[in-house]
Nucleic acid binder design. Structure first.
Lengths: 153, 153
DNA sequence: CTAGTTGCAAAGAGTTTGCATGGCG
DNA sequence: CGCCATGCAAACTCTTTGCAACTAG
């Protein structure tokens, strides 16, 4: 089993805590390191990288490579929401991850499998693009958190 | 705009040639460097990186990061192969990249946009999974299933 | 001739590894 | 006490930059 004896340590608790607090977004290893150090929590970067690696290989955390960014991003994967079945959308603008559950997309999956002979692995696939909110900003970043007029799509 | 005169040099020709020969797959900067050096073509890595950068910013070449890989991949953007319109499938097993052209998937795109308020960017999205061959299955090959090069290592 | 181009070497950034110490169970 | 975890420092990999020499137009 993958249950190779795993000790519960202060550092791991804190890294996991940080991941859970940021489960709605992706976070870099460096951000975790800096966050914890800012809290006077002594955690070496080696530990962070190593633990993150372990979590990724266990499927508990997902690792992404974002366009432009040079470092990897990590995000906690909630095991209870069926992430292995549905698609994931990540906004390249705000970085938010959307879980897409929809029968239509389930059909798409079957379509690709039946008509194109390809088995999509949802745990490794992320559709990149722009979410409605960010698309409504008209390239004005930093401003406009509210969409003004014609935000109906 | 790009009014800055661009000289035609032997090195650039060769880098471009390498990209064109691999237009059906993504290739790393290092692969380009090694390919050219294997052909006794003297091209410094600085030049490769710099030229690649320029091509990317001009939209002539696409850069992306693949799962697991630590280095960036580049691929020539053929204006005629509609890569910006269709989906890409990458077999995590054999590494081959498939260009998926299918009306059904175009509909799916609209569905995501209309029902989930998200604009998928095909130039940044790659669906990961397993191709039929690697899955050990022999299903019907769809007509719209166009296969292109893979990792021939 | 002049501005863009090249490439060595060295700097950087992010990540991994070696190894001795520390701590969970 | 045994085994896993930790973390410093150094190694590594990929990429970028400084700078002097070079070359296409």
């Amino acid at each position: 089993m993958a249950a190779s004896t795993s000790y519960k340590t202060k550092q791991r608790d804190q890294i996991m805590d940080c991941l859970l607090k940021n489960k709605d977004r992706h976070i870099t290893a460096d951000e975790i390191i800096r966050t914890l150090n800012a809290e006077k929590t002594e955690v070496g970067k080696t530990t962070v990288y190593r633990y993150l690696d372990k979590l990724v290989s266990q499927g508990i955390v997902r690792r992404y490579f974002i366009e432009g960014g040079k470092s990897a991003c990590y995000q906690f994967m909630d095991q209870n929401n069926g992430c292995s079945r549905h698609y994931h959308l990540k906004c390249v603008d705000c970085g938010q991850l959307f879980h897409l559950e929809c029968d239509y997309l389930g059909e798409m999956d079957s379509h690709i499998r039946d008509h194109h002979d390809f088995h999509v692995d949802h745990s490794k696939t992320v559709l990149y693009g722009q979410c409605g909110t960010c698309a409504g900003k008209f390239n004005v970043r930093g401003a406009a958190f509210r969409k003004t007029g014609g935000d109906n799509k």
